[in-house]
Amino acid sequence: MNWLTNFVRPKIQKLVRPKEVPDNLWHQCPKCSEMIFHRELEKNLRVCVHCGHHLRMPVRARLRMLFDNEAWTEIEQPTVAIDPLRFKDRKRYSERLKDAQAKTGLKDGVVVAHGTMGGINAVAAVFEFDFMGGSMGVAVGEALIAAAELACLQESPLIVLPSSGGARMQEGILSLMQMARTTVAVDRVRDKGLPYIVVLTDPTTGGVTASFAMLGDVALAEPGAIIGFAGARVIEQTIREKLPEGFQRSEYLMEHGMVDMVVHRHELRAKLIQLIGLLMHKNPSADVVNLAPSARRRKPEPDRAAAPPDPTVPDMTFDDR
Protein backbone atom coordinates (compact mmCIF):
# COMPACT_ATOMS: atom_id res chain seq x y z
CA MET A 1 0.00 0.00 0.00
CA ASN A 2 2.78 2.35 0.97
CA TRP A 3 4.65 1.63 -2.15
CA LEU A 4 1.51 2.26 -4.17
CA THR A 5 0.56 5.52 -2.46
CA ASN A 6 4.03 6.91 -1.96
CA PHE A 7 5.67 5.97 -5.15
CA VAL A 8 3.35 4.88 -7.91
CA ARG A 9 0.56 7.37 -7.41
CA PRO A 10 2.72 10.50 -7.49
CA LYS A 11 4.43 9.24 -10.62
CA ILE A 12 1.12 8.76 -12.35
CA GLN A 13 -0.13 12.10 -11.14
CA LYS A 14 3.00 13.70 -12.44
CA LEU A 15 2.35 12.28 -15.89
CA VAL A 16 -1.28 13.23 -15.96
CA ARG A 17 -1.07 16.66 -14.39
CA PRO A 18 -0.86 19.62 -16.78
CA LYS A 19 2.36 21.61 -16.69
CA GLU A 20 2.11 24.30 -14.06
CA VAL A 21 2.85 27.93 -14.63
CA PRO A 22 6.16 28.79 -12.93
CA ASP A 23 5.03 29.87 -9.50
CA ASN A 24 7.39 32.80 -9.15
CA LEU A 25 5.87 35.08 -11.76
CA TRP A 26 3.25 36.38 -9.41
CA HIS A 27 3.66 37.16 -5.74
CA GLN A 28 0.91 37.50 -3.25
CA CYS A 29 1.28 40.33 -0.78
CA PRO A 30 1.22 38.77 2.69
CA LYS A 31 -0.66 41.76 4.00
CA CYS A 32 -3.33 42.70 1.47
CA SER A 33 -3.31 39.39 -0.44
CA GLU A 34 -3.28 41.18 -3.79
CA MET A 35 -1.25 39.61 -6.58
CA ILE A 36 1.80 41.50 -7.80
CA PHE A 37 3.70 40.71 -10.99
CA HIS A 38 7.27 39.79 -10.04
CA ARG A 39 8.91 42.40 -12.23
CA GLU A 40 6.74 45.12 -10.87
CA LEU A 41 7.55 43.96 -7.33
CA GLU A 42 11.31 44.00 -7.91
CA LYS A 43 11.09 47.38 -9.61
CA ASN A 44 9.26 48.69 -6.59
CA LEU A 45 11.98 47.34 -4.25
CA ARG A 46 9.67 44.61 -3.01
CA VAL A 47 7.19 47.07 -1.60
CA CYS A 48 3.62 46.02 -2.36
CA VAL A 49 2.26 48.26 -5.10
CA HIS A 50 -1.21 47.95 -3.63
CA CYS A 51 -0.84 48.49 0.10
CA GLY A 52 2.75 49.62 0.64
CA HIS A 53 3.66 46.54 2.70
CA HIS A 54 7.42 45.98 2.81
CA LEU A 55 8.22 42.41 1.82
CA ARG A 56 11.49 40.79 2.87
CA MET A 57 14.34 41.38 0.51
CA PRO A 58 17.14 39.06 -0.67
CA VAL A 59 20.56 40.24 0.35
CA ARG A 60 21.87 41.18 -3.11
CA ALA A 61 18.78 43.23 -3.90
CA ARG A 62 19.47 45.07 -0.67
CA LEU A 63 23.04 45.82 -1.62
CA ARG A 64 21.90 46.99 -5.04
CA MET A 65 19.55 49.53 -3.49
CA LEU A 66 22.14 50.81 -0.99
CA PHE A 67 25.27 51.63 -2.94
CA ASP A 68 26.00 54.27 -5.59
CA ASN A 69 25.61 53.05 -9.17
CA GLU A 70 24.40 49.71 -7.83
CA ALA A 71 28.05 48.80 -7.41
CA TRP A 72 29.67 47.17 -4.43
CA THR A 73 32.48 44.78 -3.49
CA GLU A 74 31.78 41.83 -1.26
CA ILE A 75 34.49 40.65 1.04
CA GLU A 76 35.57 37.07 1.43
CA GLN A 77 34.71 35.92 4.91
CA PRO A 78 36.98 33.75 7.00
CA THR A 79 35.79 30.16 7.23
CA VAL A 80 34.63 28.91 10.57
CA ALA A 81 34.13 25.51 12.13
CA ILE A 82 31.09 23.90 10.54
CA ASP A 83 28.63 22.41 12.99
CA PRO A 84 30.78 22.72 16.11
CA LEU A 85 28.40 20.73 18.30
CA ARG A 86 27.60 18.08 15.67
CA PHE A 87 24.00 19.01 16.31
CA LYS A 88 21.15 16.86 15.15
CA ASP A 89 17.48 17.37 15.78
CA ARG A 90 15.03 15.85 13.35
CA LYS A 91 17.66 16.62 10.77
CA ARG A 92 21.41 17.12 10.95
CA TYR A 93 22.51 20.73 11.27
CA SER A 94 25.19 20.09 8.64
CA GLU A 95 22.41 19.11 6.23
CA ARG A 96 20.33 22.14 7.14
CA LEU A 97 23.38 24.26 6.40
CA LYS A 98 23.88 22.62 3.01
CA ASP A 99 20.22 23.14 2.16
CA ALA A 100 20.38 26.79 3.15
CA GLN A 101 23.55 27.24 1.11
CA ALA A 102 21.93 25.65 -1.92
CA LYS A 103 18.78 27.72 -1.49
CA THR A 104 20.54 31.08 -1.15
CA GLY A 105 23.90 30.62 -2.84
CA LEU A 106 25.52 32.05 0.28
CA LYS A 107 27.98 30.48 2.69
CA ASP A 108 26.07 31.76 5.68
CA GLY A 109 23.49 34.34 6.71
CA VAL A 110 25.37 37.63 6.30
CA VAL A 111 27.05 39.34 3.36
CA VAL A 112 29.59 42.09 4.01
CA ALA A 113 30.18 44.62 1.26
CA HIS A 114 31.74 48.00 0.75
CA GLY A 115 31.21 50.73 -1.77
CA THR A 116 30.24 54.36 -1.80
CA MET A 117 27.02 55.98 -0.72
CA GLY A 118 26.60 59.51 -1.93
CA GLY A 119 30.29 59.40 -2.73
CA ILE A 120 31.23 58.48 0.84
CA ASN A 121 32.88 55.11 1.56
CA ALA A 122 30.64 52.83 3.53
CA VAL A 123 30.61 49.25 4.78
CA ALA A 124 27.38 47.30 4.98
CA ALA A 125 26.57 43.99 6.63
CA VAL A 126 23.27 42.61 5.40
CA PHE A 127 21.37 39.59 6.70
CA GLU A 128 19.67 37.05 4.46
CA PHE A 129 16.53 35.88 6.21
CA ASP A 130 16.22 32.91 3.86
CA PHE A 131 19.42 31.49 5.31
CA MET A 132 17.99 29.61 8.29
CA GLY A 133 15.88 32.55 9.34
CA GLY A 134 18.89 34.86 9.39
CA SER A 135 19.89 33.12 12.61
CA MET A 136 23.14 34.13 14.27
CA GLY A 137 25.84 31.52 14.62
CA VAL A 138 29.63 31.74 14.66
CA ALA A 139 29.82 32.60 10.94
CA VAL A 140 27.45 35.54 11.39
CA GLY A 141 29.54 36.76 14.33
CA GLU A 142 32.62 36.41 12.15
CA ALA A 143 30.94 38.47 9.41
CA LEU A 144 30.16 41.29 11.81
CA ILE A 145 33.70 41.26 13.19
CA ALA A 146 35.00 41.45 9.61
CA ALA A 147 32.59 44.25 8.72
CA ALA A 148 33.64 46.27 11.78
CA GLU A 149 37.33 45.73 11.06
CA LEU A 150 36.83 46.86 7.48
CA ALA A 151 34.94 49.97 8.56
CA CYS A 152 37.74 50.84 11.01
CA LEU A 153 40.37 50.22 8.36
CA GLN A 154 38.61 52.38 5.77
CA GLU A 155 37.51 54.89 8.39
CA SER A 156 34.03 54.56 7.02
CA PRO A 157 30.65 54.19 8.66
CA LEU A 158 29.22 50.76 9.36
CA ILE A 159 25.64 50.07 8.32
CA VAL A 160 24.00 46.85 9.46
CA LEU A 161 20.66 45.55 8.23
CA PRO A 162 19.59 42.65 10.42
CA SER A 163 16.76 40.32 9.45
CA SER A 164 16.90 37.49 11.89
CA GLY A 165 14.90 35.29 14.20
CA GLY A 166 17.73 35.41 16.75
CA ALA A 167 20.40 32.98 17.83
CA ARG A 168 21.06 29.79 15.87
CA MET A 169 20.05 27.09 18.31
CA GLN A 170 21.98 24.42 16.44
CA GLU A 171 25.21 26.07 17.58
CA GLY A 172 24.09 26.05 21.21
CA ILE A 173 26.06 28.19 23.63
CA LEU A 174 28.40 29.33 20.84
CA SER A 175 25.50 31.12 19.19
CA LEU A 176 24.74 32.87 22.48
CA MET A 177 28.37 33.96 22.67
CA GLN A 178 27.92 35.77 19.36
CA MET A 179 25.88 38.36 21.25
CA ALA A 180 29.00 39.37 23.15
CA ARG A 181 31.12 39.01 20.07
CA THR A 182 29.04 41.25 17.85
CA THR A 183 28.84 43.79 20.67
CA VAL A 184 32.63 43.97 20.71
CA ALA A 185 32.57 44.30 16.92
CA VAL A 186 30.31 47.35 16.83
CA ASP A 187 32.09 48.83 19.85
CA ARG A 188 35.32 48.83 17.87
CA VAL A 189 33.62 51.08 15.34
CA ARG A 190 32.36 53.27 18.17
CA ASP A 191 35.87 53.44 19.72
CA LYS A 192 37.15 54.77 16.40
CA GLY A 193 34.55 57.55 16.44
CA LEU A 194 32.88 56.19 13.31
CA PRO A 195 29.11 56.08 12.80
CA TYR A 196 27.31 52.80 13.31
CA ILE A 197 23.83 52.83 11.84
CA VAL A 198 21.31 50.02 12.14
CA VAL A 199 18.37 49.54 9.83
CA LEU A 200 15.95 47.20 11.55
CA THR A 201 14.15 45.13 8.94
CA ASP A 202 11.54 42.45 9.27
CA PRO A 203 12.08 40.55 11.51
CA THR A 204 14.68 41.51 14.09
CA THR A 205 14.17 39.44 17.21
CA GLY A 206 15.83 37.47 20.01
CA GLY A 207 19.57 37.51 20.54
CA VAL A 208 20.18 39.70 17.51
CA THR A 209 18.00 42.48 18.88
CA ALA A 210 19.51 42.05 22.35
CA SER A 211 23.01 42.72 21.06
CA PHE A 212 24.40 44.73 18.14
CA ALA A 213 21.00 45.53 16.60
CA MET A 214 19.98 47.77 19.50
CA LEU A 215 23.35 49.50 19.81
CA GLY A 216 23.27 51.73 16.75
CA ASP A 217 24.22 55.39 17.05
CA VAL A 218 21.12 55.89 14.97
CA ALA A 219 18.42 53.27 14.62
CA LEU A 220 16.15 53.25 11.59
CA ALA A 221 13.36 50.79 10.97
CA GLU A 222 11.44 49.76 7.90
CA PRO A 223 7.65 50.19 8.13
CA GLY A 224 5.76 47.33 9.72
CA ALA A 225 8.84 45.29 10.65
CA ILE A 226 8.60 42.97 13.66
CA ILE A 227 11.22 44.06 16.18
CA GLY A 228 11.45 42.62 19.66
CA PHE A 229 13.22 40.43 22.15
CA ALA A 230 10.79 37.67 23.09
CA GLY A 231 8.50 36.06 20.55
CA ALA A 232 4.88 37.15 20.58
CA ARG A 233 3.75 33.59 21.27
CA VAL A 234 6.02 33.28 24.29
CA ILE A 235 4.71 36.56 25.68
CA GLU A 236 1.10 35.57 25.12
CA GLN A 237 1.68 32.29 26.91
CA THR A 238 3.36 34.06 29.80
CA ILE A 239 0.86 36.83 30.39
CA ARG A 240 -2.19 34.95 29.05
CA GLU A 241 -3.58 38.07 27.44
CA LYS A 242 -4.00 39.33 23.93
CA LEU A 243 -1.19 41.55 22.78
CA PRO A 244 -1.86 45.21 22.01
CA GLU A 245 -2.42 46.13 18.38
CA GLY A 246 0.72 46.81 16.40
CA PHE A 247 2.82 45.29 19.20
CA GLN A 248 6.50 44.86 18.28
CA ARG A 249 6.04 46.66 14.96
CA SER A 250 8.43 49.45 13.91
CA GLU A 251 5.86 52.19 14.48
CA TYR A 252 5.10 50.82 17.95
CA LEU A 253 8.79 50.82 18.81
CA MET A 254 9.17 54.36 17.63
CA GLU A 255 6.25 55.41 19.83
CA HIS A 256 8.05 53.79 22.74
CA GLY A 257 11.33 55.53 22.03
CA MET A 258 13.26 52.53 20.75
CA VAL A 259 14.01 53.71 17.19
CA ASP A 260 14.76 57.12 15.70
CA MET A 261 12.62 56.89 12.61
CA VAL A 262 10.58 54.60 10.47
CA VAL A 263 11.77 55.02 6.90
CA HIS A 264 10.01 53.88 3.73
CA ARG A 265 12.28 51.64 1.68
CA HIS A 266 12.21 54.06 -1.24
CA GLU A 267 13.71 56.77 0.95
CA LEU A 268 16.09 54.56 2.86
CA ARG A 269 19.20 55.11 0.79
CA ALA A 270 18.75 58.88 0.73
CA LYS A 271 18.18 58.90 4.50
CA LEU A 272 21.31 56.85 5.15
CA ILE A 273 23.38 59.12 2.94
CA GLN A 274 22.02 62.18 4.71
CA LEU A 275 22.88 60.70 8.12
CA ILE A 276 26.39 59.55 7.31
CA GLY A 277 27.06 62.89 5.65
CA LEU A 278 25.96 64.71 8.77
CA LEU A 279 27.80 62.43 11.17
CA MET A 280 31.01 62.39 9.12
CA HIS A 281 31.01 66.16 8.46
CA LYS A 282 30.92 65.48 4.74
CA ASN A 283 28.77 66.71 1.91
CA PRO A 284 27.42 63.83 -0.06
CA SER A 285 27.44 64.24 -3.81
CA ALA A 286 24.21 65.69 -5.14
CA ASP A 287 23.00 62.89 -7.40
CA VAL A 288 21.67 60.73 -4.65
CA VAL A 289 18.28 62.18 -4.09
CA ASN A 290 16.49 58.96 -4.71
CA LEU A 291 17.66 55.45 -5.01
CA ALA A 292 15.26 53.83 -7.33
CA PRO A 293 14.49 56.12 -10.23
CA SER A 294 12.21 53.46 -11.58
CA ALA A 295 10.37 53.14 -8.32
CA ARG A 296 7.33 55.30 -8.27
CA ARG A 297 5.73 55.09 -4.94
CA ARG A 298 2.00 54.58 -5.06
CA LYS A 299 -0.15 56.01 -2.37
CA PRO A 300 -1.68 53.18 -0.39
CA GLU A 301 -5.44 53.02 -0.52
CA PRO A 302 -6.74 54.22 2.81
CA ASP A 303 -8.80 51.13 3.67
CA ARG A 304 -5.88 48.85 2.88
CA ALA A 305 -3.45 50.88 4.88
CA ALA A 306 -5.66 50.36 7.90
CA ALA A 307 -5.71 46.59 7.43
CA PRO A 308 -4.73 44.63 10.55
CA PRO A 309 -1.08 43.66 10.78
CA ASP A 310 0.13 40.34 9.52
CA PRO A 311 -0.79 37.81 12.20
CA THR A 312 2.07 35.45 11.47
CA VAL A 313 4.49 36.60 14.05
CA PRO A 314 7.85 34.89 14.12
CA ASP A 315 9.00 33.45 17.37
CA MET A 316 11.98 34.43 19.49
CA THR A 317 14.16 31.80 17.96
CA PHE A 318 14.50 30.65 14.42
CA ASP A 319 11.75 28.39 13.23
CA ASP A 320 12.02 26.77 9.84
CA ARG A 321 8.43 25.68 9.47
Partner: peptide
Protein backbone atom coordinates in the same frame (compact mmCIF):
# COMPACT_ATOMS: atom_id res chain seq x y z
CA UNK B 1 15.79 34.06 31.10
CA UNK B 2 14.79 37.69 30.79
CA UNK B 3 11.11 38.33 31.46
CA UNK B 4 8.94 38.06 28.34
CA UNK B 5 6.19 40.61 28.91
CA UNK B 6 4.46 43.45 27.11
CA UNK B 7 5.83 46.15 29.42
CA UNK B 8 9.32 44.66 29.27
CA UNK B 9 9.23 44.82 25.47
CA UNK B 10 7.84 48.34 25.45
CA UNK B 11 10.57 49.57 27.74
CA UNK B 12 13.24 47.99 25.58
CA UNK B 13 14.18 44.60 27.01
CA UNK B 14 16.49 43.96 24.05
CA UNK B 15 18.18 47.33 24.34
CA UNK B 16 18.63 46.92 28.09
CA UNK B 17 20.32 43.53 27.64
CA UNK B 18 22.49 44.78 24.78
CA UNK B 19 23.70 47.75 26.84
CA UNK B 20 24.32 45.52 29.82
CA UNK B 21 26.56 43.25 27.73
CA UNK B 22 28.27 46.33 26.35
CA UNK B 23 28.96 47.63 29.84
CA UNK B 24 30.28 44.25 31.04
CA UNK B 25 32.71 44.34 28.14
CA UNK B 26 33.63 47.95 28.74
Amino acid sequence: GAYPGVGAEERGQAEAIARCIQTCLD
